[in-house]
Write a protein that binds this DNA or RNA. Structure first.
Lengths: 210, 210
DNA sequence: CTTCGTTTAAAACAGGTGTTTAAATACACC
DNA sequence: GGTGTATTTAAACACCTGTTTTAAACGAAG
């Protein structure tokens, strides 16, 4: 079963696991090919370069997540009942849908994004905006509808703060969970998202302007 | 004037600049020694290893920031008027005080912390807690006083969310500012902290529990 | 001036990186 | 079944990494 998968698929699965655990630069092609039980050169054969592999790994998740998010946003917009919390909730379903590309897919995707933002500065952002800029802008438009009294600049920064909160927590999640587990009970990932992260982020975004 | 400084000082100044710009792993000792106009081997002579250099760079800032923060916290505790916003404001002055170790010191320090949390997982946290755990615990105690109705677990997570927000924004700040500058006016760093980040973070921390 | 511990200097070390090459194999199609 | 393309393989490539070595230069004390 494990040996049955085609080479490029085995590379992708090994790569997304290691990338999400240690980041892109800290993961070598030799680690990836070793875990995938595949020859080193096959990475460059199938994906051209390490950068190409990184993009391929990310794109697999984006192509599932972004359309699903887009659908949720359109659904919400039709209800005419747009609040910050409701917009944020639109992200939950599409994240959970990533389980279909792999077990733990939501967590992996967020970590890939997190490392992407701190390591390959700008590249990931441009890559995302080029391919899914319309979805991002749609979300932004809904946020302005939910907070019509905010200056565009305020909302711009707060949404990036929110992104930062989510990505940072995900990237340093292992270390955090080790500390938390010492004092508190083990958190269910999905509940963690809706019960812990979402209230914090929603309150931050909707905080009154000075 | 530039050539006058002693070797180890020149290494530290070059290292903290490059580390804060590109992260620890992405910065090589050869880049550092080249910028410092110093021989490569002198890093290992003065600091033992690259890890030793990283710790030395960080410690220089911690030794200024942490005592200043501790003083602010004690001052606040004496007032008997403890709110989330006031605790967060305690961080502003000590951050600004880092300008005395170097111009732009506050920004450098936060970036050093940010990269530390995503790269050298856990090490930085243990290092900080070992040396300044009392200050951290003091801050945590004040936050529980300001939010007495919260479960300890809730506050634990929200404070880490807040840390994540600040560090992520700082680390990806260059890219963010480039986007922001295209649409908005240039933000003053100190005002950015107090007028933009602090309201978001304070509202997130104090958000009502579900 | 000489001596001795500290500091700098150039070079080499051992190991790891992404990538490329060229030959061997697998596989589909006529 | 043989042919030709697609894929896999092992090896080498060129470069970069942190660290160590050995010798030279420095600077203060006797």
């Amino acid at each position: 079963m494990s040996k049955a998968a085609k080479t490029s698929e085995r590379i992708l699965r090994a790569a997304e696991k290691l990338f999400s655990e240690k980041g892109y630069e800290a993961t070598s092609l030799r680690e990836i090919t070793q875990l995938a039980e595949v020859n080193l050169a096959s990475v460059n054969y199938h994906f051209g370069s390490k950068k190409g592999l990184i993009q391929a790994v990310l794109e697999r998740y984006q192509r599932v997540f972004m359309p699903a998010l887009s659908a949720e946003l359109k659904l919400l917009e039709a209800t005419q009942n747009i609040t910050t919390e409701r917009i944020l909730t639109c992200f939950i379903g599409p994240l959970a849908a990533l389980e279909e590309v792999r077990q733990g897919g939501a967590e992996i995707y967020l970590k890939l994004l997190g490392y992407g933002y701190s390591e390959i500065q700008g590249h990931l952002r441009k890559f995302t905006m080029n391919r899914f800029g319309d979805v991002v802008q749609h979300a932004f438009r809904l946020f302005t509808l939910a907070n019509p009294h905010f200056a565009a600049e305020t909302l711009f920064w707060r949404l990036h703060f929110a992104l930062g909160t989510v990505l940072f927590v995900q990237v340093s999640g292992k270390a955090l969970n080790e500390i938390a587990r010492a004092d508190f009970s083990d958190p269910n990932p999905e509940l963690f998202m809706t019960q812990r992260l979402l209230p914090y982020v929603a309150a931050g975004i909707s905080a009154p302007e000075l």
